[in-house]
Design a binder for these strands. Structure first.
Lengths: 206, 206
DNA sequence: ATAATTCTTGATCAAATGGTCAAGAGCGGA
DNA sequence: TCCGCTCTTGACCATTTGATCAAGAATTAT
């Protein structure tokens, strides 16, 4: 069945390449300046592209921003989704915390992008928060509850435990300027990871 | 000695009142939209004042922002400064964490203002971070170290413990949209406070 | 090859926005 | 009361910025 002359369904190679270039540049700019603080000119300059050309691929500034968020939302859920109900609680949580710390180290820009979006009321990702994220957290909270019921974990509110893990791990990406300023040096990820694991896990032992 | 005709040293009553009105409005606007996202018009509208009149009190948008940050920096340090070296470690830390949780509840806007500033590289408060804040944290880290040395506290890195307390407590102000979305309701501060105290303190007992 | 389609850009626009100015209104001290 | 200083504002300006457009260059399909 011939695809009658509709709008481009399949991206050309050039489209794929340029959209990728734009999203890469946009992550740099949006994470550094926020949605309102970033300008289309900046993103165009960083992707070495004229502004009209950039707007040929994404018709509005907001479209770039939304695409960028969607592009990374699934990555965000992955480590939590991998929390294994039949594994050992402390090992599973340790793995999760380590994974989040490594994400903060490897991709602080994505972390700051989300932080900024949520800080400003999450206008673009409200549905994600109330939908997939909420659902996954509920599911994993049940897992933690079952561990507690089985006497394998100290009786801690699972939701607030998850919040605490998010808060602490993402702090090293979002507030790295403050961390470095207070420590007087660029913080070593290994040291931080070890300390965070101790602080968060020590109290969870039965 | 008569004060010769210099610029106004002492603020008039009207100045005091209007500057206060402006700063109140500015906290609302800057915390919601960030420095770049906020507009002078918005702040003027919120303070029920014409834009030129607002700019009579603060000549530039940046001046309002800086005044606002300075206006609250000392409040920020106060609870940590009150950590008492000769008190019981767990009670002192419990008091500190509770104070921070109450600040998140009582003044989430100030928390978001700082979060946004730090997230974007802290261009205006770099000196505060590397100066007074660093110094105070060093001092209190020593207190925690002495508690550990005295066998009154589990051996935890004091700097990362402080970071963890900041991260978790401020999370409830800065990421409240996410917290509420995941829980499906407005979170009750008492519940959150109790959970946070357990999570952070349980592992600190010797 | 060549027609159709996709890609690229200089020039331009309208709106938003930070900030200025001059002139008038209001207030406080002598 | 009167004078000088503080306060207030409508009108205005220059720049920034998101977005458009028309026309030409490059690519792709036949």
């Amino acid at each position: 069945m011939p695809q009658s002359k509709l709008k481009p369904i399949v991206n050309t190679r050039i489209q794929a390449r340029n959209k990728e270039l734009i999203l890469d540049a946009a992550l740099d700019i949006f994470s550094a300046f926020g949605f309102r603080g970033a300008t289309v000119d900046q993103i165009a300059a960083k992707s070495e592209m004229s502004k009209p050309n950039l707007l040929y691929y994404f018709r509005r500034k907001e479209d770039i921003y939304v695409a960028l968020l969607e592009h990374t939302l699934s990555d965000w859920l992955k480590p939590l989704a991998e929390l294994n109900p039949s594994g050992d609680p402390l090992i599973e949580l340790s793995r999760y915390i380590s994974a989040k710390m490594e994400m903060s180290e490897a991709n602080p820009k994505a972390s700051r992008l989300f932080a900024n979006e949520i800080l400003h009321g999450a206008p673009m990702i409200e549905k994600f928060l109330k939908g997939p994220l909420k659902q996954l957290v509920n599911e994993k909270a049940q897992v933690i509850k079952s561990w507690i019921a089985a006497g394998k974990l100290a009786p801690i509110d699972p939701y607030h435990l998850i919040f605490a893990i998010w808060a602490v791990t993402q702090h090293y990406a979002d507030f790295s300027v403050q961390v470095d300023a207070v420590l007087g040096r660029r913080e070593d990820i290994r040291t931080a990871q070890k300390a965070v694991l101790e602080i968060l896990l020590r109290g969870l032992k039965v």
